[in-house]
């Protein structure tokens, strides 16, 4: 990891110095132990802050989109001949690059507006899982030694195998190496266990209807509608989200359980062919809602029905913008 950090900083510094990028989005060490947080770097000297490790959770494609769209918005007030392009550099692992591919497919920005520094990924630590493993006590200090996490909590010291603390989506990730990059840092990461990616979903599919409904309502009852999941999701980039529209009002804003379920259903359904399973929504959710149980099902269906995996290749067309003559239609009602 030391080496990767060093190389990353060098490349980032060079890109900024040569003005190949205007701003670089990466990760820096977080203020709490065993965390990393997104950072925005414009001064080449600050590239020293960059890190790439198992604590980098959020999908940075979100910020690439935000930065470019805000910049474009600001350029609207500038005379056409004086308009400038903003080039954003980004430290991107597999799922981040998939989100960028998705943005490019959806014509959100041009390939020339983003410089992708690809990094190999062996999974990130799920903060909620870690805190359970640490016994629920506050983590005072922590470090990663080899494949063990050394955690000092208020109650004492603990050794936790890194593997046990990794996020669920990382364990079965199919794209832990970038699918698109301008430069790569570090060697290809070894594969995770993609053959098991749908095991959990298949088990859930086989439950009786009533149990599935009970699980859905139980999970959605936890939701406090903070919209952190939406804010973190790179695929949620609408200027005005349907939940905030008032004409028409798609979903009620109160604390009615049905409204919450409908909000979730609609957001989930907007992820058809668009969720890259980065787990950013899950990791920011303050209530620990099991969003992945539903998102991964959508991913599974899209693959089974349309043979598409969101953002896996720049040549693909978004699955809901095309059709094939032989698409399944056994569900069509014919009395």
């Amino acid at each position: 990891m030391e080496n990767i950090d060093k190389k990353l900083r060098e490349e980032a510094k060079r890109l900024l110095e040569e003005k190949k990028v205007g701003v670089l989005v990466g990760y820096e060490t977080g203020t709490l132990p065993l965390t990393a947080t997104p950072c925005f770097i414009t001064n080449p000297e600050d590239a020293e802050k960059l890190v790439w490790n198992a604590f980098c959770t959020q999908n940075l494609a979100k910020f690439v989109h935000d930065l470019i769209s805000q910049h474009r918005e600001s350029q609207k007030r500038v005379k056409p001949e004086d308009r400038k392009k903003k080039i954003v550099g980004v430290v991107a692992r597999g799922c981040t690059t998939r989100s960028i591919v998705l943005h490019l497919q959806e014509r959100q920005y041009g390939r020339d507006e983003v410089v992708i520094i690809g990094v190999p990924c062996t999974g990130y630590v799920d903060g909620k899982r870690l805190s359970v493993l640490a016994g629920g006590d506050d983590i005072r200090e922590g470090s990663l030694e080899g494949d063990q996490l050394l955690v000092k909590t208020t109650a004492g010291e603990k050794r936790i195998p890194l593997q046990d603390a990794l996020a669920g989506n990382c364990l079965t990730c199919r794209f832990n190496n970038p699918v698109l990059s301008d430069l790569m840092i570090g060697a290809q990461a070894p594969p995770m266990k993609p053959e098991q990616e749908y095991t959990e979903i298949e088990a859930f599919e086989n439950l009786p209807t009533a149990e599935r409904w009970a699980y859905f309502t139980k999970e959605m009852n936890k939701c406090i509608r903070c919209y952190a999941c939406r804010q973190a999701c790179p695929s949620c980039y609408c200027n005005t989200c349907f939940v905030e529209q008032s004409q028409p009002q798609w979903v009620g804003l109160g604390e009615d359980a049905t409204d919450t379920q409908v909000f979730q259903l609609m957001r989930l359904f907007h992820m058809v062919g668009r969720c890259v399973d980065c787990g950013s929504c899950v990791s920011v959710c303050p209530m620990g809602v099991d969003l992945r149980k539903f998102l991964k099902k959508i991913d599974k269906d899209v693959f089974e029905l349309f043979e598409n995996r969101a953002g896996s290749s720049l040549e693909d067309t978004p699955p809901l913008s095309i059709f094939k003559e032989h698409d399944k239609e056994d569900f069509i009602f014919n009395p």
Partner: peptide, 20 residues
């Protein structure tokens, strides 16, 4: 495309426990 959306929607609603 409507066919695709419905295929996905129907499967998904069934999955969360709404009768197909």
């Amino acid at each position: 495309m409507a066919r695709r959306k419905f295929a996905a929607l129907k499967r998904f609603l069934d999955y969360i426990g709404l009768e197909g």
